[in-house]
Design a binder for these strands. Structure first.
Lengths: 189, 189
DNA sequence: CTTGGAAAGTCAACAAGGCTGACGTAGTTT
DNA sequence: AAACTACGTCAGCCTTGTTGACTTTCCAAG
């Protein structure tokens, strides 16, 4: 990790973004930190994300559901018993938005909402068997794509991939992911 | 979060997705190819992508623009003179959708549309100075975030990150990215 | 026991940004 | 001259996000 930015100073070929003291476009700078390269990564992320979500989207379109339903199903599957409030935090949408989605899923028998044991204001969410089946159908093509990409890229690349993704996200969400990792770890000792 | 009531139990293994001959959940399988791990990556991608797009979104909200405008601006900036059809291919939306966005950007003087020299049916798109200024303002926080993540993760991780993203996307888009890389390469020999 | 506030649900209205379908108009190709 | 291509546009629909204004239920603190 020894790359200091050592200034750079020297000329601004770049358009209008020299405001950033750490934003050079020079030979002395590691290639992977150059501005153009960084812009390219925006595209890599865009294309990869679209391909990744496109798989389940095709299945969802055949039902009456959209990506919002998929997200809810995904997280309920990952943490069964999760409360509505917790899910709101994770998804970062308004309760009205989420409620519309949850209402459908519950009406269609994919999600079950149980009154909390301690605090009976809370609703704990679970996937029904039918819900689990749909979840599997949705995540299956995603796992497929990931596995293919991982095989092609190799273990070191995958490790780096995970590391960078983690560094990119906001800390609050990072904590959430960590928590899930622990749950997972204790599940297969 | 006191919240006990973990109930759940979450049965031993995945529900109904053993159909795939290459989809085991065993000790013999490299950890990074296990099903649960792959599901977790879906979340990493989701959170990272949201954080990454959230930065410019905040700026866009102060104007009358949305993410769709950002995408158009981004790609026009990357390949000035690009035709409308090419942009449609890249963005993967209908021309009606794109047109709504382009009409605004042109009316507001951020994008210029020039009739093609060879084929005068085509329109070639360029960012005006004002458009370039906005582009810089939008991509700046993204570069910031990327640079911070890259510094924290290190060069090897970054290389792996790029590799996996590339393997994840659809081949057609991969070709597009490759083309851009070449253009970039010849720009600083 | 009353009361303040948190958790959840709902109604209504609206906007962004996708989509389809149908047309029109240049300009190019055959 | 006919066919096809690139682009623009009108009209209408859907999903999913947003505010704002409630109500109901419930916990906990005064």
């Amino acid at each position: 990790m020894g790359e200091s930015d050592r200034t750079a100073s020297r000329r601004a070929d770049a358009p209008g973004l020299v405001d950033d003291a750490t934003a050079p476009s020079l030979e002395s700078v590691p290639g992977y930190l150059r501005d153009e390269r960084l812009l390219l990564v925006a595209e890599l992320l865009f294309f990869a994300y679209r391909a990744f979500t496109g798989d389940p989207d095709r299945l969802l379109a055949t039902l009456t559901y959209g990506r919002a339903h998929h997200r809810a199903i995904h997280f309920i599957n990952r943490q069964p018993g999760m409360t509505v409030n917790r899910l709101l935090d994770i998804l970062g949408v308004t309760k009205q938005s989420l409620n519309r989605v949850l209402r459908q899923l519950i009406a269609d028998g994919l999600v079950e909402s149980r009154v909390g044991a301690q605090d009976r204001r809370e609703r704990h969410l679970y996937l029904t068997n039918e819900g689990q089946t749909l979840e599997a159908g949705l995540s299956d093509p995603q796992r497929h794509r990931l596995r293919a990409a991982y095989r092609a890229a190799g273990p070191e690349a995958v490790a780096g991939f995970h590391t960078v993704l983690e560094k990119l996200m906001d800390p609050a969400m990072r904590a959430h992911v960590k928590a899930e990792l622990e749950v997972e770890a204790e599940r297969k000792p």
